[in-house]
Write a protein that binds this DNA or RNA. Structure first.
Lengths: 162, 162
DNA sequence: ACAGTTACTTACCGAAAGCAACTAAGGTGC
DNA sequence: GCACCTTAGTTGCTTTCGGTAAGTAACTGT
């Protein structure tokens, strides 16, 4: 019993679904990511790195709420990470001059260096993994993956309003 | 400060890395997956589903250790999941006749039905997300994603031996 | 100016997985 | 056949990550 899907759909869809499941497990499940972080001599969890990286690509001075939206987590999660990272001098908070409820966050030089180390380690890892890929496959993979991310994002925002 | 990568590498690599980060967050972080599960009326976590699905594609009667290898988690994790899923009659354990230390696991009909519901919901979701994708892009995405998974797997096993 | 909303915080909880230490069963050498 | 090591699984404890609920302070529309 078990084994095959009785209701067969588009085989490409099944293939994507299966691979996506594996990718999700690989990427989320400590192991791989933490290994890259250790190698980058970075003492921070995945969530920390994601926040810092996001901050680095978001330009200076982002509000906490915007960070939450970008990371697709909710407010308390961002609050905690920011507090912790602030304590470690990896980012700094300044009050928003236009809204006294809010605060703006920006990377410190140390935070920026950390992000660079992570990006560098990730690039090294990816280059190793994609070693035998053709130039064309890499470009195609990047393009499709990016498109997938935006389409999933749109789908998440679509049904229940923003 | 911040913003761009001072050390630029292959732009495709950067693009893939960036998208991969997003995909990882999307797939690991409850939200999306749990939404699919809820819609499939499945009362089980991601880890449970991953185990059951793996079991379903592994054929009958797999040992716990083999499950751990396939899922890339360690033994205690599998033990706990199997205990819980066994209690819910979604899988059954039988002692391994050839090794009294080990036990074999197989899906029950209820477990197989659960997996089918999840696959079905996932297919529906993916079809919606990939709605406007060309046939060619879907096929290409599936191919590249699958290749990526196997290459990452090889990389994980390579350095430190299996 | 008062009600309602927004931005963030605090406190509590659950899911998932890792590590260390343990038990039981299987194999090896002598 | 008996020490000895290895392997399969289990149990207990810890960490990381994130969500929900409830609260406070600041903004905003009428």
């Amino acid at each position: 019993m078990a084994s095959v899907t009785p209701v067969a759909g588009d085989p490409d869809i099944e293939c994507i679904g299966l691979a996506l499941e594996s990718v999700g497990r690989l990427l989320s499940q400590g192991r791989l990511v933490e290994q890259i972080l250790r190698q980058a001599k970075v003492d921070a969890g995945r969530a920390d790195v994601a926040l810092l990286h996001n901050l680095s690509s978001a330009g200076d001075c982002v509000r906490l709420g915007e960070l939450a939206d970008r990371l697709r987590v909710d407010a308390p999660t961002v609050t905690r990470r920011v507090q912790q990272l602030g304590g470690r001098q990896l980012l700094r908070r300044v009050p928003d001059p236009r809204d006294k409820r809010a605060s703006l966050v920006h990377l410190t030089p140390a935070g920026a260096r950390l992000v660079q180390r992570v990006l560098c380690a990730r690039r090294t890892w990816l280059e190793r993994v994609l070693d035998r890929w053709s130039e064309r496959d890499r470009a195609e993979f990047g393009r499709l993956l990016a498109r997938f991310v935006t389409d999933v994002g749109k789908d998440l925002e679509g049904p229940d309003g923003h």
